[in-house]
Write a protein that binds this DNA or RNA. Structure first.
Lengths: 336, 336
DNA sequence: CTGAAAGCGCTTACAG
DNA sequence: CTGAAAGCGCTTACAG
């Protein structure tokens, strides 16, 4: 049996109330009693139960986090920032990985509720109707990080994806490219699907560039799909001289495909990514990318959530963070 | 206020015992009562408190996991497997990231104990004396994954690092290389430091190869250190024709360095990695690597821990998993 | 400064 | 099949 507060009290010859007081560092405990209690705690190797404490205090210090893919460098970097801020504030993370499995998500949200987590972070925008309703019903603060789900009433910490994609495309145009291929994401995703696609389209047409049907393709953000989609782009008669992929992973896949076909990056084709993940500096040529402030994103997410938990600011709308182009080696200027 | 079991009982006109019974799917509840209780639960949106339940059942369904670096693809892949097995068994993960901060580790172990987790997984071998004692004292099953700490009494799920490094080196020798550089890890680490180094040394001397002082360097497993150490190797008069780095990250760093110096891989220098992380297939040339079964490692770790929790097998020694060489493009055979 | 008692929200013998 | 009561291990008014 675990030793409990009662055992400590008995051995120290005081009441459990007193033991509880020294445990919680309250004053109004005479020094000699405090010393004795501490000695007994040490002797018995007593550790208070957070479970019991949570029950009476109605405070668990738990945050539930739902990650779409733990093995992704993008999400695990955000998670790592979240963890840092959480631990600085004495919060612990209950981490769930839902790999595309939307049923698992609902199950986990239920678990989170049963565990009485104080807040929930979701890095996933594919929410279905039951999940949407669940989030509305639940009285625990929920915040989305790096994604923006369909329901406008949910709060997200994101970059302006439309603007970021617009600027990325314009950057390629300014480099002299006319035919710019696009490897998009899932069009059901607002953030990384629709908004980035619109940004690309509008940048093209605003600068008087032709949108070419064959130059526009969609993947699933992962390396392999970047590779596959690039293969299709290379198959057409006049392939683009530059390609903008809406994730660094897809951009790396595209680069690999181009090189496996005997072409060079950026000499033959320029490639631009999106995200600013660790990969950008690992690959050769190093990847030019429209970067999200990944670390900051995790940090801000956790801070906003903390405020919501404290009941301070009812965070009206989304928090929009700054994006920026990180120029590396994968895009080059074209002579007119 | 959260609705509680008492509210449900009152509204349904039954005792809390009965509500508890339908909640836990016990039989011996008349169908009409069960139906009524379920209806009220639905109406009131009642969710049972895991906290209260844990307190009385003395079972939290919580596993504590300590990860040295969440952003590392190696650890996050293991974590992802652990999560899958855990969730299949109704366990939830409390995840802590200790970035080199050994004090944070002790603090977290304490939190785990207070949270009454049922088991602890550690992916980190740099344990100091207080931590060592803590683990011995605590009456919660602890298991190490992918690492082997100094204390032989702790159980680990690992590969045979000595043998793996031996075979990796022998592979390069069989390819015809005489001068094989080595980029090792931290020599205070048994698994990835000492054992891999011994494997390299013995493979070299067993095959009659000369150990060259200048060919042996040590990094910290990360990309940048692979880059830096490779730079040193290239600085000497007769640089090695092949390099074995004890992590894929360092191998990638080495490749980048070699290429940034205007040399080619594998034409000028062959590079072999260790781990079998996702990176191996992302980079060009794709990285030949001594692979650990990363996914299986997480899975086995969780399964063994689950058995320990169930009190079934007292897992005597370590669990040693099979390694294998995955040949890709970064090593080539040398003409004698 | 200290302690007896109630209560947090459940489950589990025990009795019927 | 059902319910009253005790108890899980703490904290927190309340009284002294």
């Amino acid at each position: 049996m675990q030793v409990k507060i009662k055992d400590v009290a008995k051995r120290a010859g005081v009441s459990v109330t007193t033991v509880s007081r020294v445990l919680n560092g309250e004053k109004y405990v005479k020094d000699d009693l405090r010393a004795k209690v501490n000695r007994v705690i040490e002797e018995l190797g007593y550790t208070p139960s957070q479970i019991a404490r949570s029950l009476v205090r109605k405070k668990t210090n738990l945050i539930g986090v739902i990650v779409p893919d733990l093995t992704s460098s993008f999400y695990s970097t955000i998670l790592s920032s979240i963890e840092r801020v959480a631990s600085e504030n004495e919060y612990n993370l209950l981490v769930c990985n839902i790999s595309e499995d939307i049923d698992k998500e609902l199950k986990y949200l239920n678990v989170f509720q049963e565990m009485r987590v104080e807040g929930i972070i979701i890095m996933h925008e594919k929410i279905n109707e039951p999940i949407r309703q669940f989030i509305h019903k639940i009285r625990i603060p929920v915040i989305f990080s790096s994604v923006k789900p369909m329901d406008q009433s949910f709060v997200s910490v994101i970059v302006d994806d439309y603007k970021a994609a617009y600027e990325a495309t314009r950057y390629l145009i300014e480099l002299g490219h006319d035919a710019i291929g696009f490897i998009g994401g899932d069009m059901r995703d607002i953030t990384s699907g629709q908004n980035r696609y619109s940004g690309y389209r509008n940048a093209m047409t605003d600068q008087g560039k032709k949108l070419v049907y064959e130059h526009i393709r969609f993947g699933d953000y992962k390396v392999q799909s970047g590779y596959d989609q690039m293969k299709e782009l290379l198959r057409i008669d006049n392939p683009p001289t530059a390609v903008f992929a809406v994730s660094d992973d897809m951009a790396v896949g595209a680069i690999n495909c181009i090189r496996d076909q005997g072409l060079r990056v950026p000499e033959d084709i320029s490639v631009m990514g999106f995200d600013g993940s660790q990969l950008t500096e690992l690959v050769r040529p190093a990847l030019t990318s429209m970067e999200q402030p990944i670390q900051e994103m995790g940090q801000v997410t956790m801070n906003v959530l903390l405020q919501q938990i404290a009941g301070e600011s009812e965070q009206a709308g989304d928090v929009v963070l700054a994006h920026r182009i990180a120029v590396r080696e994968s895009c080059r200027s074209i002579q007119q």
